[in-house]
Nucleic acid binder design. Structure first.
Length: 876
RNA sequence: GGGUGAUUAGCUCAGUUGGUUCAGAGCACUACCUUGACAGGGUAGGGGUCACUGGUUCGAAUCCAGUAUCACUCACCA
């Protein structure tokens, strides 16, 4: 059977994914083995796969597959997030395109549309992950709005409310006028924007004086309810106790004093608008000021806006400046750069707004979550994020958990009256009714008298329970699964959601299980393009992941992503790396092709070279898997891959296979062949986490396997003792071979022509690999000599001198020059070593070990100089 | 503005508690080779004052201080 010279990933990958699925290898059940659990960071249910997901899920799959091979009960739980704002925005936009306004629909009608949308687009991303090879336990797929997941959320809300940790408050919140909902502080991004600082004049009541204030938001003057000066500001002493008149609306407002005002900034006078600025709100509370909210929910002006009513805030800003200028109230305008809060989801400029919202107290819950990370019960990888985490947790503010959205978990608060506090909190409407009857002492209260709070909960209020709720750990805290799988092992996610999600999962974990939700958090970097720009849809610089998989194969793309992604560092994605990845697949494929093509004979003895090669490779393999193990333990996945890559490409393909390769057309002895297959199988095992498809393909091509014998569930190679000496001896031999190759190249001697080699064995080097040297150097005669060989080219490995007789081709002068250069270098080296050793302070202060090393360096250098001098003399 | 981290080859990055002539890897580059696994191959090379300036030390890419640039993160100066 002819095997194609080019590995064709496309034909192979779906086949094996189907095979794995069919045999249920991804599924995990509670058993007596040690569990290894990862919960996926649930992507938005209607999202599509982007490069960030590719990186993130490749890493998770590597960890999960490796755990599975190591005999752990690996369980990777997939799922999706309802992503309230994002999904609702999409549904609203879609309805709008069809001419339907959200406000014209009832709650139920809108939710029906949202569910339709979810069912239509939901889960596409999970299908895409399958192309990548993700070995998720698909039977466990969860959605944050599944019935049981929702019940968990509601149960936790009620519990926290009863514990007094959730409260309702009238607070300044971040209002997104586009999505018409509040946002948590974490969902606001601050951007620097070029704006203007307007200097406005207010008439001082009862005088002809004016005072001047500076503001970036002139439209908010209509909501002004005071002017504030610093009591220590002598410039304004004459204003104390006076009143000012707001331009345009001609309202009279008090002039108050507070040392909050910075005398240096602007004019030293501050306009106070309690409804539209958090600091102003604080001032207002302190000084009992009136609160005038001038905006509608969509940030157009309301009736307080007078003739601007109904116009957008930014339109009004331009127009009001014009009016102020015309009427002489505008003093001057300066260019000004300020930070503007924008919505993480919609990009709209945030409007600070006072409203009734639900909050979760954070301080108490933050403490154990902080301790866990500081005390390394939970490891952040890389550790540099600990500082950021600590800073955030120490300054944590209460979490605004209500959203003015329909898509999400409706807040289980039921109002029985019109008062702000006329509500009860309960898991069901029935329980709410009972509670309400009790509270009101009105047993006639009917279900229809209760109105449930219209708002939904922040999306993160469900995802923070994810590691518990996917195992039903909230509703049934004592069930077998949660006890077995929790705490999970590793969490792989982006640093961007360290606070949104990771920190809150830790808090919830300690609150509800008294235990960390995971042991390690691997924080991936952001995937950027070559110019370091973040990949984004709008820039159009993000490659389509599925197209990449199509072109390079999933294995190729996985390797491409991992080749350059140290934890926590951004990944500069370069498609060439995928090319390197698919090149690697092809290399592995061809190495198999070579092995597979040999004829096997029972009648020949195992050659010495093959035996040595096998001994050496087994040791080298053992040494390398220790290195790989070490890299994994530090979550240095790209280093683990690189060690594997070099082992396979350099040691296995370039050295080992070349050493055991029989002469062209000759058969191979069966003993060697058996060993080569066993070595190949070990290689496939350590490659499998990175490149699951090509490895399974080869594994199954080697011989027929039962489903139980599939590579995905094979046993990771055991660590055995290995021989360090043979590795050293081989590396010496490899240097000799390199020397021979260099001379062949310099003198244009084809590899096909046999040559002779002699050695002056000053080092007393072991002869173990002599047959290998002969084979790899195509040496006809390899002899040991006692003195220099005349008329031969030479090279040195350590103190040994090697000679290759070349008829008439020796350029004595060139040889001499080469030796002299080497001599000069070695003498320089010796000098530096001697200098060190003659320095008393070095000898006295440096550790003995270091001094001993220096001494042996000295001896080596001296021996080498002797050898070089001898050669030189010989040439003269 | 505060905090944190970074700066090593053309690119992406290693460099473990200061100690081999320690300055590395992969890719890219150059020259040559290649009809017998693989041109997605092989062999051999070139390439860096370890951001800068001082200091500590017998010895500094590594420790300390300052400077510059960058990144991330937090923050209510209108």
């Amino acid at each position: 059977m002819a095997i194609p010279a080019h590995y064709n990933a496309k034909e192979v990958e779906d086949k094996w994914y189907d095979y794995w699925m069919k045999n249920n290898y991804f599924h995990s059940e509670v058993d007596e083995r040690e569990p290894y659990t990862i919960v996926i960071p649930p992507p938005n249910v209607t999202g599509v796969l982007h490069m960030g997901h590719m990186l993130n899920n490749t890493i998770q799959d590597v960890l999960v597959r490796r755990a599975r091979l190591k005999g752990l009960n690996a369980c990777w739980v997939p799922g999706t997030d309802h992503a309230s704002i994002a999904t609702e925005a999409k549904v609203v936009a879609k309805l709008k395109a069809e001419g339907i306004e959200k406000n014209d629909l009832s709650r139920e009608e809108f939710l029906q549309h949202a569910w339709d949308w979810t069912h239509k687009h939901g889960g596409i991303i999970l299908q895409q992950l399958k192309k990548l090879g993700a070995s998720c336990d698909w039977e466990r797929t969860k959605f944050t709005m599944d019935e049981d997941m929702s019940s968990s959320v509601i149960k936790v809300f009620v519990d926290l409310y009863e514990k007094g940790l959730i409260y309702r408050g009238y607070r300044m919140v971040n209002w997104d006028p586009q999505a018409k909902t509040t946002l948590s502080d974490e969902e606001v991004n601050y951007e620097e924007r070029n704006g203007k600082l307007y200097y406005l004049k207010y008439k001082v009541d009862g005088t002809n004086d004016y005072l001047t204030i500076a503001t970036t938001r002139p439209e908010t003057i209509l909501g002004d309810t005071a002017i504030c000066i610093n009591p220590n500001d002598e410039r304004f002493a004459h204003l104390k106790g006076k009143k000012a008149i707001v331009p345009i609306c001609n309202r009279t407002i008090p002039i108050i004093e507070d040392d909050y005002v910075d005398m240096e900034f602007g004019t030293g006078c501050l306009k106070v608008t309690p409804a539209h600025d958090e600091n102003d709100k604080n001032l207002g509370d302190k000084h009992n000021l009136e609160v005038i909210d001038i905006f509608n929910d969509d940030a157009t002006l309301n009736h307080y806006g007078l003739h601007y009513e109904g116009k957008d805030r930014f339109v009004v800003r331009a127009e009001i400046v014009e009016e102020l200028e015309l009427s002489g109230f505008l003093d001057k305008v300066e260019e000004y750069v300020n930070k503007v809060g924008t919505s993480e989801r919609t990009g709209a400029v945030i409007e600070p707004k006072l409203s009734d919202q639900w909050f979760l107290k954070m301080k108490e819950m933050a403490q154990p979550a902080l301790d866990a990370v500081i005390g390394h019960d939970i490891n952040l990888v890389p550790e540099k994020f600990i500082n950021t985490y600590r800073h955030w947790m120490e300054n944590v503010r209460d979490w605004n958990i209500s959203r003015q959205l329909l898509w999400g978990h409706q807040i289980p608060a039921y109002f029985y009256g019109t008062g702000k506090n006329d509500f009860v909190v309960a898991e069901t409407a029935g329980e709410a009714l009972e509670k309400a009857r009790k509270v009101t002492r009105n047993s006639d209260l009917k279900a229809s008298d209760l109105t449930q709070d219209k708002d939904a909960l922040d999306t993160w209020f469900s995802s923070w329970l994810w590691p518990m709720s996917v195992f039903n750990g909230i509703l049934e805290p004592e069930n077998e699964e949660i006890k077995y799988y929790y705490p999970t092992n590793d969490l792989v996610t982006a640093p961007e959601i360290l606070f949104f999600w990771v920190a809150r999962m830790i808090m919830a974990g300690y609150e509800y299980r008294g235990e960390r939700p995971f042991k390690n958090v691997y924080l991936t970097g952001i995937v950027r393009d070559k110019q370091r720009r973040k990949m984004s849809k709008s820039l159009g610089n993000s490659p389509d992941p599925l197209a990449l998989i199509d072109q390079y194969g999933a294995d190729g793309v996985r390797v491409g992503m991992l080749l350059s992604s140290p934890a926590g560092n951004d990944l500069m994605f370069d498609e060439d790396l995928c090319k390197q990845g698919s090149g690697f697949s092809n290399k592995i494929w061809n190495a198999f092709r070579l092995v597979q093509g040999w004829d096997i004979s029972e009648d020949i003895e195992q050659p010495e070279t093959a035996k040595m090669a096998i001994d050496w490779y087994r040791s080298k393999f053992q040494k390398t898997i220790r290195e790989i193990e070490d890299h994994y333990s530090k979550y240095r996945i790209s280093d683990a891959l690189m060690s594997t890559y070099k082992l396979i490409w350099d040691d296995y393909c370039s050295w080992f296979l070349e050493m055991v390769k029989p002469a062209y057309g000759e058969p191979m002895d069966s003993k060697t062949y058996q060993e080569i297959i066993s070595i190949l199988e070990d290689n496939l095992k350590i490659l499998h986490p990175f490149m699951p498809f090509v490895t399974e393909e080869i594994w199954q091509e080697i011989t027929d396997r039962t489903p139980e014998e599939a590579l995905i569930v094979a046993k990771w190679p055991e660590e055995r003792n290995f021989d360090e000496t043979i590795i050293k001896e081989f590396s010496h031999a490899a240097e000799v071979i390199a020397g021979v190759r260099k001379i062949r190249k310099d003198k244009n001697i084809s590899f096909k022509n046999e040559i002779d080699l002699s050695v002056l064995n000053n080092e007393n080097t072991s002869k173990t690999f002599d047959t290998v040297i002969s084979k790899m150097g195509n040496i006809s005669q390899f002899e040991y000599v006692n003195g220099s060989v005349d008329g031969a080219l030479s090279f040195r490995v350590r103190s040994n001198e090697y000679f290759i007789p070349v008829a008439g081709a020796v350029d004595v002068e060139a040889e001499k020059k080469k030796i002299k250069e080497e001599l000069a270098y070695t003498e320089g080296f010796l000098k530096s070593v001697e200098k060190k050793l003659s320095n008393e302070r070095f000898v006295n202060n440096a550790p003995e070990k270091v001094v001993a090393i220096e001494k042996s360096k000295k001896a080596d250098a001296e021996a080498r100089i002797e050898a070089l001098k001898a050669s030189l003399k010989n040439l003269n």
